[in-house]
Design a binder for these strands. Sequence first.
DNA 1: AAATAAATTTAGATTAGTCTAAAAATAATT
DNA 2: AATTATTTTTAGACTAATCTAAATTTATTT
Lengths: 219, 219
Amino acid sequence: MNSYTEENYLKAIYKLVEQDGEAVSTNAIAEKMNTKAASVTDMLKKLSDKKFINYQKYQGVTLTAKGEKTALIIIRKHRLWEMFLVEKLNFKWDEVHDVAEQLEHINSDKLIEQIDKFLNFPKTDPHGDPIPDANGKLLTPKSKPLSAFNVSDNCLMMGVVDHSPSFLQYLDKMNITLGNEIKIKDIVEFDKSLQIIVNKKQTFFISNDVAKNILVKTK
Amino acid sequence: MNSYTEENYLKAIYKLVEQDGEAVSTNAIAEKMNTKAASVTDMLKKLSDKKFINYQKYQGVTLTAKGEKTALIIIRKHRLWEMFLVEKLNFKWDEVHDVAEQLEHINSDKLIEQIDKFLNFPKTDPHGDPIPDANGKLLTPKSKPLSAFNVSDNCLMMGVVDHSPSFLQYLDKMNITLGNEIKIKDIVEFDKSLQIIVNKKQTFFISNDVAKNILVKTK
DNA sequence: AAATAAATTTAGATTAGTCTAAAAATAATT
DNA sequence: AATTATTTTTAGACTAATCTAAATTTATTT
């Protein structure tokens, strides 16, 4: 089996590759893992020996098929546990991350498949992120940032980019949650802030920075 | 916080003290932890420094109040997770141990209290073992081995001594489960085997060894 | 294209937990 | 009580993951 630490490196590398779309640097991994570049280099050698990553000295890394599958299965567990915490144990969407970071490393196929079944096979986690299947296959839902839409577009809230508790709490306060309808009433020329109508009821302004972090699709 | 390994040592020491009722030896711990005596000595020093155990070289160990509370909170988590697996995720009582060994180390007060609530505050785990409360207090249910009773005594199945999958599967096959009524019809003079009537329906023989491992109380 | 800056890797230590082999302490036996 | 056996501890070494500091490679600037 792989160690807790190896799993966390694979997950970090997966997310960086997903984000940047290219080979990721030692420093980028070090920052994400809150560790030093020298430690990362040591681990990269190990992950490379185990065929989880493609690694050439000084050239950055990408995941092999084996590494990507392993990363996606950890992400599957993380997201299923988040869903469980919110749906069954009264956690808020801004409280689940740290616990799921621990639970994702529990090793039991039966456990995770039963959790999946218990939740009735959810497609996304509480933040709208897609849940990979048991083989590590991911169906990415088609969504774009709200900031990419225009005046009078009518959208459906699909997820978030920033997952920080403070951002999620802000969305709660504004009543912006998964599945809500968001219609763009106006876009301010000066700062690109948006006036939006949520669920045909509340009308208010959000900054363009906020809009960039809200994922929606056209309704 | 305490490491995964420290927690496992504390749990092992708790169980050995509970079983033997006196200071436990380095070798006994080594055997229970599947490790070597030299490794145990190292860990005992560390646990002693942290005030979890009373330890004098060559004299064996007992738990301090702090150590016992810590052990009981780990046992609380283990037993609540076992109950969750059986009650909510279709695990059998002989399948839960290994997964619960992992889950017991998850660190989140909210998580474990919500699991407790979700299960409607169970008093015992799937094997009839009592679940300590959130402060590490344990109410031991009064039960004795079936082998301590006499002909025509009518008992209620309360738990098991041996927790091995093979023993639990045997009990399943014989339809002996928690809460069943067990009446002693006869005790064979020769080998002390027992003829029992389960739930007023099935009558059959069990060995004295088996009877020693079934915990009951008088109905 | 040479010099400088930035990123990355190597070298050598450190910590937690483990091990083997040897030494020391306790227990059992004659 | 002396000897032998058993248990426990110490000494020194190993692995995984980390670190700092120095060396090396790659990238950027002049």
